[in-house]
Design a binder for these strands. Structure first.
Length: 739
DNA sequence: TCGGGCTCCGGGTGG
DNA sequence: CGGAGCCCGA
């Protein structure tokens, strides 16, 4: 009888009983490298959280010894919440969060060694592009030939492989390679001057830090006795190396993942990390979680019948105790509008057959652009919905503008934010002046804000403009001082007020500007909420960091009574009783560019697998024979994934004929070249309506037409209803009766 | 310097 | 189709 086993059984807390045998084995194997291959819906979050709780409960670790990493804030939040339930009051000091947020935290502490100050800014893609544009301009290169987008892509690739500018230079084979290396070098220099890191830097700068300062590496290697990694199949090379460094001392690294759900190859994820874990750690213990607790038998079988066609995978098949359930429903329709309509019809039917909540439904698509028609169809039937992703809140112009002010206050070196707002609202300070200021700052080794304060000494700037600059400089100084006294929310509110952003938007008075004003107001609320949640001590810097690492997805709550619309990528990790996947067409899903690239095609297939396994009870797959893209129509062919589906698990409902019947007019099959006949009809219909006309809607009741936008298929009408208020309706669906 | 209007081009997923 | 960038007139 070994000492160890008797101890373990004595200490085994009751909660291991909540787990199946594989889960429980994976939880209690705390020492050494552990690979947990966890299929969709097999309880992987459960294993991770119980593992943490187990470490704490058995006294194997304190909270501060644990480092737990996820990819999304949502997953991190969920993990934190669930651990808190299992081990209340024992979480203080635990490093639990996304890769990016944890390493941002580390770099705030240690970044000075690499020349960053602790308030460094975190640049998103658009900030990155702004920096690259400047670099391209400085190098006098053509923006067309060397597009910032292409450059950012190549630089990001280089960073993910941990290649430095000099490496690119040495490996260069073409003149373009040389230029990329040069741009990369200048880009990094510039970021350092701006005291800013991009998302890739958050991962590679810690590696640089650990390599240059072995004592720092040792400190963290020592500190983190236990590492836990979620979604390991999505790690890129930099993350892989980071984990390798951090695990080097204690070697207690547990990774959870599913090679079938690797869907981020395009941004550097390397599926070999999980496929080769056993080679990296030959002594690792491996566990398979193959019991699915989420979906019906047919949904699982259908999803598996597609993904099994991939060559790059560990062969495996999930099983379930659940009944087979209903067939996967395949719906073929005539065009994208009909697709949207049939999705909404089916959804409403399921809702009525219920008892259902709208939150039980999700509509998933390959590209954000597809959300539009679905959204309009839902709106026309007054079904509440929630769009995740798309144009993200924090990427809206008006929101970024306000944030740019705050970012400049937080980091006076942030010349990118400065550029954004120095002339917003208009102060007569244009491109030429900005360049002079930046030039001056660089010459005198000043931050842009310091340069601003000394602008009166720059002779090349006209006196009139110097006055404008000085007024702006005073504004920034004033708020820099106020930053010490006010909470972030008070500061932001005062600023928005003084600068006149709200006033200007109000004056504009268009629907669009009202909308933008509401976004600004919402931002102010969000800042206040952040302060409330994080206490009086939370600073502007904390808020800004949180913002740059947050996406819309993270605010998704599962309690909302609304249909969720989102991309297949966003859906990872979520589940819904009823799921629609729309646009199952060659060229769209799989996307055209992947069709000739086998690894990319396999990734599309995995993406389908991820989407299908989100469904608990019922899965609908739809495709359309005709789809409008970029204003033009194109005929399409059903996705190869439809053909790969095991026919035992599906049944087909073609709605081509019922659509015709519904419309009471034929749709020609040769609509490819000609404009769609029904669109032409709609614009004629719109001519019947006039502004000011009284109309009746079957749901909203009586109202008056305020505005008609007769742009073909998207013809919209704005009606002020007597009781339901203003509503934007899509004319073809509006079913308005003229009174 | 600014803003309107035009053209041109992208087209995909996100921390 | 829609957004970004560019050109031109004020």
């Amino acid at each position: 009888m070994s000492n160890r086993s008797s101890k373990a059984s004595a200490k085994t807390p009751g909660f291991l009983e909540d787990l199946n045998s594989q889960q429980s084995a994976a939880v209690s194997q705390t020492e050494g490298p552990v690979l947990i291959l966890a299929g969709a819906g097999s309880g992987k979050t459960r294993v991770l959280t119980y593992r943490i709780a187990y470490l704490l409960a058995n006294g194997l670790a304190d909270a501060s010894d644990i480092l737990a990493m996820t990819f999304t804030n949502k997953a991190a939040g969920e993990m934190r919440e669930r651990v808190a339930k299992l081990a209340p009051d024992r979480m203080a000091g635990m490093w639990i969060g996304t890769f990016h947020s944890l390493f941002a935290r580390l770099m705030r502490r240690e970044g000075e060694r690499l020349g960053y100050s602790s308030n460094f800014a975190i640049y998103d893609e658009s900030d990155q592009l702004a920096v690259l544009k400047q670099v391209v301009t400085d190098l006098k290169l053509s923006m067309q030939e060397f597009s910032p987008k292409m450059l950012s892509y190549r630089i990001s690739n280089a960073k993910n492989r941990l290649a430095l500018p000099n490496d690119l230079h040495e490996q260069a084979e073409t003149p373009l390679d040389e230029i990329v290396a040069r741009v990369y070098q200048l880009y990094q220099n510039r970021l350092l001057e701006l005291n800013a890191m991009d998302f890739d830097d958050l991962l590679i700068k810690p590696i640089e830090l650990f390599e240059r300062f072995p004592l720092v590496a040792e400190y963290y290697q020592d500190k983190f006795h236990y590492l836990l990694v979620d979604e390991y199949q999505d790690t890129n090379h930099a993350q892989y190396i980071l984990l390798k460094i951090l695990a080097a001392k204690h070697r207690n690294i547990a990774v959870v993942g599913d090679d079938d759900q690797s869907i981020y190859r395009w941004r550097g994820a390397d599926i070999r990390n999980i496929l080769d874990f056993e080679k990296d750690y030959p002594d690792c213990k491996k566990y398979h979680l193959e019991q699915n607790y989420r979906s019906t038998g047919k949904i699982l079988a259908a999803a598996h019948s597609v993904v099994k066609n991939n060559r790059q995978r560990h062969p495996k098949e999930l099983w379930t105790n659940k009944p087979d359930g209903e067939d996967v429903c395949l719906l073929e329709v005539e065009n994208d509008l009909a697709e949207a309509r049939i999705v909404v019809n089916k959804l409403i039917r399921e809702f009525k057959q219920g008892p259902r909540n709208f939150g039980d439904f999700a509509v998933l698509y390959r590209t954000n652009a597809q959300s539009r028609v679905i959204e309009e169809a839902l709106r026309s039937e007054s079904v509440p919905y929630l769009i995740v992703g798309g144009v993200k809140f924090y990427e809206r112009k008006e929101v970024k503008d306000v944030l740019a002010y705050l970012r400049l206050l937080s980091n006076p070196a942030d010349a990118i934010s400065f550029r954004r707002i120095v002339n917003y609202p208009a102060r007569g300070i244009g491109e030429a002046t900005i360049n002079k200021l930046e030039e001056f700052a660089r010459q005198h080794h000043l931050t842009i804000v310091e340069a601003l304060n000394r602008a009166s000494t720059i002779d090349s700037i006209q006196p009139r403009i110097r006055e404008e600059i000085s007024a702006f400089a005073q504004l920034i100084s004033k708020y820099t001082l106020l930053k010490q006294e006010l909470s972030p929310a008070e500061l932001a509110a005062a600023l928005v007020d003084e600068v006149g952003i709200a006033r200007d938007l109000k004056q504009e008075g268009t629907l669009d500007s009202i909308n933008r004003m509401e976004n600004v107001r919402e931002l102010l609320l969000a800042i206040a909420e952040f302060s409330a949640k994080n206490g009086r001590t939370s600073t502007l810097d904390d808020y800004l960091q949180q913002v740059s690492l947050t996406t819309d997805l993270d605010s998704l709550t599962d309690r909302t009574n609304a249909v969720t619309l989102m991309t297949l990528h966003s859906a990872k990790g979520l589940e819904f009783p009823i799921v629609f996947i729309v646009g199952m067409e060659e060229g769209l899903f799989p996307l055209s560019r992947s069709i000739t690239d086998p690894p990319a095609l396999e990734e599309e297939r995995r993406l389908f697998y991820v989407g299908a396994t989100r469904a608990k009870e019922k899965l609908y797959l739809t495709w359309s024979r005709f789809r409008r893209r970029f204003g033009d129509g194109m005929q399409s062919v059903p996705s190869r994934f439809i053909k790969e589906l095991d026919p035992e698990t599906t049944h087909l409902e073609s709605s081509l004929h019922s659509v015709r019947a519904e419309r009471r007019r034929p749709i020609s099959d040769d609509a490819f070249d000609a404009p769609m006949p029904d669109y032409a009809d709609q614009s004629q219909e719109s001519n019947e309506y006039r502004i000011g006309m009284r109309v009746m809607h079957e749901i909203f009741g009586k109202g008056t037409i305020l505005k008609i936008d007769p742009s073909g298929a998207q013809a919209k009408i704005l009606v002020l209803f007597d009781t339901a208020g203003k509503r934007r309706l899509i004319l073809p669906y509006a079913k308005l009766e003229i009174l």
